[in-house]
């Protein structure tokens, strides 16, 4: 889509706010609607939009495959690791009360940690699915659509 000037300019303007909005959804999930799942998807959407307009090759240069593949596992490890950490601190698996001195603050820390894990895994899975699908065919001409 090299010659689509409007698309390129609009994409450049949109990617930043979309990323910011994803972070808002991620970390404001305790207070409003949203959470890790939605934030991960929105975060991935910003990258996919970039990839659609500025070619998959440039996106892969920005976020290489191996980074995405490791993020897929990192999110899940962060989630399960939070559970293991609470085990070591003397609580049950995923019992966040033990993470801080005051029980409800521990809950807040635990929720932030596991939501981050959810967000990272969902983001990376969405992006790797996009890579897997879009990486297979030769790039389409605009005329084909």
């Amino acid at each position: 889509m090299e010659h689509h000037l409007i698309l390129r300019v609009v994409t450049k303007m949109l990617v930043g706010p979309i990323l910011l909005y994803a972070l808002y959804v991620q970390f404001h999930g305790d207070f409003g609607p949203g959470g890790g799942f939605q934030a991960g998807v929105i975060f991935a959407v910003a990258f996919i939009l970039f990839g659609l307009v500025f070619s998959l090759r440039q996106l892969r240069k920005l976020v290489p495959d191996w980074v995405v593949h490791q993020l897929v596992a990192l999110g899940l490890l962060l989630y399960a690791g939070t559970g293991v950490l609470t085990l070591f601190l003397g609580g049950n698996f995923l019992d966040y009360n033990v993470l801080a001195d005051v029980a409800y603050q521990g809950q807040h820390w635990g929720i932030i940690a596991i939501e981050l894990g959810v967000g990272i895994t969902v983001f990376a899975v969405m992006l790797s699915i996009y890579y897997a699908f879009a990486g297979r065919p030769p790039q389409l001409d605009d005329k084909d659509w």
């Binding site: 305790d30 999110g75 899940l76 995923l94 809950q107 596991i114 959810v118 895994t121």
Partner: peptide, 26 residues
């Protein structure tokens, strides 16, 4: 003490279920 009950239930009371869901996505 989170205003969004959905987050409270999903992340804390039903943390196992959400872990399972993330494993499915993984």
């Amino acid at each position: 003490k989170v205003p969004n009950f959905v987050t409270g239930v999903l992340a804390s009371y039903r943390g196992y279920d959400t872990l399972g869901e993330v494993t499915v996505v993984f």
